[in-house]
């Protein structure tokens, strides 16, 4: 092999090595962004510089400064403190939502897909009907019935996402069920539930992790959107959506009120999206391009 030979051959599509920043936009960057958000959420539980809820009328509409990194709002509250406290609310709600959706979806979808029969068809009918409410619609409807509250948001979003998880798990179970190692388990006389929980479901985790990550982002965004509409976590609780909603009246004079909460949401989502892409390339390349959004 000579160097000459390597350079001489015209390449079909002018393929070159990946540019450096493409190699960099990968799991590491995503994980770093995500880590910032998660640390923020933890900080929200432990310590924030100023009280995020108590008004201080002496300090209304202060522009960002060293004392107030992101300025203060119309009630004189420190925006940075509220952002950190908002991270806590957003991450908590998003995690709880994903936990609810994934556990309901996995158990029902797993049983339904593995055993089939009329129960499966009934479950699928209900799932299809629930999926007929696009995006936020079902969550909005549930919030309308339940009234704004943190638990309400978790239940509403959990219920909206569970059908998607269910459908994914059921589909994966249907394909894993046909694999020969599952038949091998039946051939040595393993009971059906043992086969399902020991052989089938553990082999469904890759797409589930990928989807769970995407759902985490969706839930975070959806919670902000619900709060923005005044149908999520009720004010004065600091959430990013509430802050954006409250900024609407004043953001002409105090644009930082709108900029920072939006940036917080965007950074969180960017982290999740980049991290999620890297994860799905590693775990389940077939799911590439399927974005789960509210």
């Amino acid at each position: 092999m000579t160097l000459e030979a390597e350079t001489r051959i015209p390449d079909r599509r002018g393929r070159q090595r990946r540019p450096w920043f493409l190699r960099q936009i990968n799991g590491t960057v995503g994980a770093a962004l995500l880590a910032i958000v998660l640390i923020g959420a933890l900080m929200g539980y432990i310590w924030v510089p100023y009280d995020p809820v108590e008004p201080n009328f002496l300090k209304r509409f202060e522009a960002p400064s060293l004392a107030h990194l992101m300025g203060t709002d119309q009630w004189g509250r420190d925006v940075f403190s509220r952002i950190v406290a908002g991270a806590r609310a957003s991450v908590t709600v998003a995690l709880a939502t994903v936990a609810l959706a994934v556990s309901v979806g996995t158990i029902v979808g797993g049983l339904s897909g593995y055993f089939g029969g009329w129960a499966d068809r009934l479950v699928m009918l209900l799932t299809d009907a629930l999926l007929a409410f696009p995006g936020l619609l079902l969550a909005l409807a549930v919030m309308a019935v339940a009234g704004p509250s943190q638990l309400g948001v978790i239940v509403a979003l959990g219920l909206s996402y569970a059908p998607s998880v269910l459908r994914l798990v059921r589909g994966t179970v249907l394909s894993v069920r046909e694999r020969e190692f599952v038949e091998a388990s039946r051939a040595v006389g393993d009971p059906a539930l043992y086969t399902l929980f020991r052989h089938v479901l553990p082999n469904c985790t890759a797409p589930l992790i990928v989807m769970g990550t995407a759902l985490f982002g969706s839930a975070l965004l959806a919670e902000s959107a619900l709060s923005f509409l005044g149908l999520g976590i009720p004010p004065p609780a600091p959430t990013w959506g509430n802050m954006l909603a409250e900024s609407r009246g004043d953001f002409v004079t105090a644009p930082w009120l709108a900029i920072f909460p939006g940036l917080a949401i965007s950074i969180a989502l960017l982290g999740i999206n980049i991290f999620g892409d890297a994860l799905r390339d590693r775990l389940d390349p077939r799911m590439r391009g399927l974005d789960v959004r509210p």
């Binding site: 190692f181 038949e183 091998a184 051939a187 393993d190």
Partner: peptide, 28 residues
């Protein structure tokens, strides 16, 4: 007993050789 066609699909990718082979012993 049965031996399957596709050696890539017939072994649970998450289980060790010892565990896979002893499945029948666990049961019987």
């Amino acid at each position: 007993q049965i031996i399957f066609q596709d050696p890539y699909a017939s072994l649970d990718p998450r289980m060790t050789v010892a565990r896979i082979v002893s499945a029948g012993l666990r049961r019987f």
